[in-house]
Design a protein around this nucleic acid. Sequence first.
DNA 1: CGTTCCAATCTTGTATGGAAGTCTGATCCG
DNA 2: CGGATCAGACTTCCATACAAGATTGGAACG
Lengths: 228, 228
Amino acid sequence: MQAPDTPDSIDRVIVDAILAGRITAGTRLGEQSLATLFSVSRTMTREALIRLEARGIVQVSSRRGWFVIKPSFEEAQEAFQARQAIEMGILMAVQRLGPEVVDKLRAHIVRERAAIASDDLEARSFLLGDFHVCLVEALGNRVLADILRDLTARTVLISALYQSVHDATASCDEHEAITNALAGGDLKRAADLMVSHIGNVEAGLTRAKDDDPLTNLRQALKLSPRRE
Amino acid sequence: MQAPDTPDSIDRVIVDAILAGRITAGTRLGEQSLATLFSVSRTMTREALIRLEARGIVQVSSRRGWFVIKPSFEEAQEAFQARQAIEMGILMAVQRLGPEVVDKLRAHIVRERAAIASDDLEARSFLLGDFHVCLVEALGNRVLADILRDLTARTVLISALYQSVHDATASCDEHEAITNALAGGDLKRAADLMVSHIGNVEAGLTRAKDDDPLTNLRQALKLSPRRE
DNA sequence: CGTTCCAATCTTGTATGGAAGTCTGATCCG
DNA sequence: CGGATCAGACTTCCATACAAGATTGGAACG
């Protein structure tokens, strides 16, 4: 992490940490803290945070601090709906599908299963989200890939926030079903499967955490709900 | 323009200028020039430019300057394809369509026609792009609205760059047809019309400008092509 | 006359210092 | 003891200064 390769490597490290679930919604990202960590000046970290803010991944609260976004339940639903619409549209608009796309996806699924089998939670979180990025990247449209990457980061945050109970194995199975449909050239079916897959993940969300900012603390203290 | 209401008002002014066609692809946006114009320090304009860069609207060339993006022909096609996929997906995913959406769109079309009739080129450019933003905004998903706003800005730049010959009146007619399909509740048809509408605009692009960076100068000097 | 080189100038890149708002916790008062 | 007040220790916010690369125009040279 010490290597300041590119000017936006800070962005990447933060986003990767989010995708891996090492950073969760609401986490504070202080300009000075990051600067110390990356051995750069506050200017650099501030610029990185500004970029991430423009990408909808962090928020600044005036003179209070920078925080990873903590979407409301409604915003969470909007994010999932956005992904449903976009990913469906992408699949329906596919003109030509090279075999290398399917190969890449199958290889990805192998890695997913490996991460699940070895209980590597970070790799699991990252790979399950990355499948969708991988798919759209393989289709060759960078514009869409960029959009989906950020949207996926948001979705990972949301899943952790509203503790999606959607099983990782189930997700992986659904990824496989989508890939199989693509391999068979049945784009319509792939699109339908994609919609239901994202819908399944969304359906696993629970509203709980949104209503009560004390939930985290309450859980940590093992208090039963609503008993102050 | 003197009013520094919000910290990101600079962003908005620039994007609005792009949507209205007052700023075109490749325009230089100097940090100091903007700072003087907005009566702020270079820090502020730099932050605004960084935000716009994250949104894919401007680019920085190291120690040379900031420029409005000048997409290659391939990138232009990607942007249009992205819009086709996303907007189709949005329409296909609509659950419920309130009558106020149609009303809003009809009002928008009236303004489009007025701008066309009065030869107000800036309003025309802005409104023709804004129709799509308006539509997705009316559907109530802010995530998608934000994405489409930026994508629309890119598309407006592209249309000017590759001098789209698609007629404004035709675009407006197509907007109306889409709105009518929505009013009739025929979402599938609306989606199809949207795809062909965006396809029509894309089809009007000409590759010419991309090949020769001197085209602008050549045209300005009224030289015939390839006669140095 | 054509070419090379260099210096002046313009641009962004980066660090730093102080202004100003926000929160915390101690102190003071009733 | 309970509640208001205020000092301080944070934080971001914003401006400024200087560093350093890029460009340009002209001078020097063949």
